[in-house]
């Protein structure tokens, strides 16, 4: 026992000495504000994906405020948002009747070495291509894959960087999208990052355990490749199986983007998404095509977008309120990042 404590003390002393050599960073402060106008061709809210919900209204997204500080090998991030996108339309806050705020990130990280770090707290999920913050997405509306997957995970994770081209993360997490666990630390997750060539990064993700619907396992591939200065291609594919054949989903989304001018990029999102069959109930499937432009000037990004979705089972409505296989919308969004 004495030897063990001595060893721990020695490691702690060494770490402390190394930490003293690493200077602290200034306090980082950043954030964003976003607002939008949407016109749905059915003259009512129709497409059932997250955010951009209001028809024929100049509506709010969210104000997002983030702090980060690193001292030696330890760092923290605290990020909080207010507004529909960050409050009523985000899952943890919806449970609190949408009257509160939404923590986007709240975690502490410690770099044991240049290659090994551990992180604990509440973090943006490692699953999927799209995120809650509009600053992190090219398209302003979101995909079915994003809407149905996890938004955030609370937990503890360890990341080991083998090189700039390969890293591995493994962690234990609460059930999805909750500040505190309802069924204990019940999920295990992992992420393998590979970067086979310069500009191409791929993440292979697995998360298995408790989720809002029960228990299940999600496998996810998220990758993007900056093929040339003007052309970038992204891909997200995911498969989610719930325990006891209780359903799930599978889908794939492709994100080609072309920079047509110094400050203007045009991108497409093409998505196929299918809910799995549950017993005799057949799962329904969606296809969606979204054409988006990003026009940047300093911190401001102006995002015009047209979106057309299709589902043969006619889950949408038309102008008269009847069922329809197609839905469409046009939106204009302004996102300012600082």
């Amino acid at each position: 026992m004495k030897k063990f404590l001595t060893a721990i003390f020695s490691i702690a002393s060494t770490t402390c000495a190394l930490a003293q050599e690493t200077p602290s960073s200034p306090l980082e402060f950043s954030g964003s504000v976003d607002t939008y106008y949407k016109y749905d061709f059915a003259k009512r809210s129709n497409i059932p994906t997250s955010f951009v919900s209001d028809h024929n209204s100049v509506s709010l997204g969210m104000i997002d405020l983030a702090l980060k500080k690193k001292t030696g090998k330890a760092s923290f991030v605290g990020e909080i948002s207010f507004g529909p996108r960050g409050q009523t339309q985000s899952i943890p806050d919806a449970a609190a009747n949408g009257s509160s705020f939404h923590i986007q990130n709240l975690y502490i990280n410690y770099d044991f070495t240049d290659n090994f770090s551990m992180t604990a707290g509440y973090m943006g999920t490692f699953i999927g291509y799209e995120v809650i913050s509009p600053v992190g997405n090219f398209n302003y509306s979101t995909s079915y894959l994003f809407t149905n997957g996890p938004f955030q995970n609370a937990g503890i994770k360890a990341t080991y960087k083998f090189s700039d081209k390969v890293s591995l993360m493994a962690g234990l997490f609460n059930d999805w999208n909750l500040y505190s666990a309802t069924r204990g630390v019940s999920s295990i997750g992992g992420q393998l990052m590979v970067s086979p060539v310069e500009g191409w990064t791929a993440y292979l993700n697995v998360l298995s355990g408790a989720d809002p619907y029960g228990y299940g396992t999600i496998e996810d591939l998220t990758t993007s490749y900056q093929i040339s200065k003007a052309f970038k291609l992204g891909l997200n594919a995911a498969n989610y199986d719930m325990a006891d054949d209780a359903g799930g989903y599978a889908g794939v989304a492709l994100y080609p983007q072309v920079a047509v001018a110094d400050a203007v990029t045009i991108g497409l999102r093409g998505e196929y998404f299918k809910y799995k069959d549950v017993g005799a109930v057949k799962g329904t499937s969606y296809t969606g095509v979204t054409l988006t432009a990003n026009i940047k000037s300093g911190g401001l990004t102006f995002i015009p977008e047209v979106r057309l979705d299709h589902n043969g089972d006619k889950p949408f409505v038309n102008k008269t309120g009847g069922v329809a296989p197609n839905a469409g919308q046009f939106s204009l969004a302004a996102v300012y990042a600082f």
Binding site: S30, A66, Q104, N105, M123, S133, G136, G199, Q226, A337
Partner: peptide, 13 residues
């Protein structure tokens, strides 16, 4: 800014 609120390079080019 990435999903964890860290600032990272957006491109390699």
């Amino acid at each position: 800014r990435d999903r964890y609120s860290n600032y990272v390079p957006t491109t390699k080019i």
